[in-house]
């Protein structure tokens, strides 16, 4: 029996009083999944918005032990914490790293890949807001094609990012770890179910969670969830999970909406030409086709080889 929203405890382990922007997807993600993870959890965050808005001395929103060291080492630090807890008779404590897309797809990839290869007994949550928001909206490997950021400005010659989004979840899936999932702030039930599943497993678990950023994406603060829904309904974001490598898409849009319906809600895409939108639509179609084929190939992996 999996957890429902109504089953969640009233108490917040990531409390009110944090200083995130209104409509921050990351804050909603963290507050809700902490309710599933519970008190016997130790948290690491690298340098990111969550570091700053979750705790600035002498204030702290975390009701569980909280740790930060640097930007590129979430998986290494979480490993150190978990291994230390093992030697101190606290093997049942859950260790979670909350890193953004910059700290994961880019600067943190080396430590992440190594921890996945070692199958460290930790949960790694990549909250993906598709740019370096904490330093002021610079592009990351996870920024989508066409998006404006302060390092991919809408210039007179070049308008927005010319390259495509890196598929981090598939990279981690290739490490053969026990659990990989994508989730979204727009699908809380799906997200909480996945977090609960991850919590009850051992070994390396990875969640990539779509987390809208009104400040960096240039959208009104009250449509965070609506944008997250449209990301999934357009195919820009695929919701899936993979237990022991068996990939399953957990929400399949009945009919995918045009990517333009997703783009037009956000100022970061405002400058895009019809040609750019066509290129992005083509990318989405191919991505969706690939994800569907991957699901077919990986869903029925032979269990007898386990």
């Amino acid at each position: 029996m999996s957890i429902g929203i109504k089953d969640l405890p009233e108490e917040n382990l990531f409390t009110a009083g944090h200083t995130a922007c209104a409509g921050c997807g990351a804050a909603i993600v963290v507050r809700n999944i902490m309710k599933v993870l519970g008190e016997n959890t130790v948290i690491y965050t690298p340098a990111n918005c969550l570091l700053v808005f979750g705790a600035t001395y002498p204030h702290i929103a975390w009701k569980v032990p909280y740790h930060h060291v640097a930007f590129e080492n979430t998986a290494a630090c979480a490993t150190g914490m978990k291994r230390a807890l093992n030697t101190l008779g606290k093997e049942d404590t859950t260790v979670v790293g909350f890193a953004g897309d910059g700290g994961t797809a880019d600067i943190g990839m080396q430590a992440l890949s190594a921890a996945a290869e070692r199958n460290e007994d930790i949960i790694y949550v990549m909250y993906d807001n598709e740019a370096y928001m904490n330093t002021g909206i610079q592009r990351s490997g996870s920024t989508p094609y066409g998006a404006w950021t302060t390092t991919t400005p809408a210039g007179k010659v070049i308008k927005g990012k010319e390259l495509f989004k890196k598929d981090v979840a598939q990279i981690i899936l290739a490490h053969n770890v026990p659990y990989v999932a994508t989730a979204s702030v727009g699908y809380p039930q799906d997200m909480l179910k996945k977090v609960e599943k991850a919590k009850n497993m051992k070994g390396f678990r990875f969640l990539q969670i779509y987390s809208s950023c009104p400040t960096g994406w240039r959208h009104p603060t009250d449509i965070t969830v609506e944008i997250a829904n449209k990301a999934v309904e357009s195919g820009m974001w695929t919701l899936f999970e993979a237990v022991d490598g068996r990939m399953e898409i957990t929400h399949r849009p009945k009919e995918r909406i045009p990517v333009q319906d997703y783009l037009k809600l956000q100022g970061r895409f405002r400058h895009m030409s019809e040609e750019q939108i066509r290129i992005l639509q083509n990318w989405v179609d191919k991505k969706w086709d690939r994800d569907s084929r991957l699901e077919k190939a990986l869903k029925m992996l032979d269990e007898s080889t386990d």
Partner: peptide, 18 residues
């Protein structure tokens, strides 16, 4: 996989009380 991770994991293990 690197000395950067060696020192990071060592710091976090020590900060956890080991």
């Amino acid at each position: 996989e690197s000395e950067h991770s060696a020192m990071s994991a060592t710091v976090s293990a020590s900060a956890t009380g080991a």
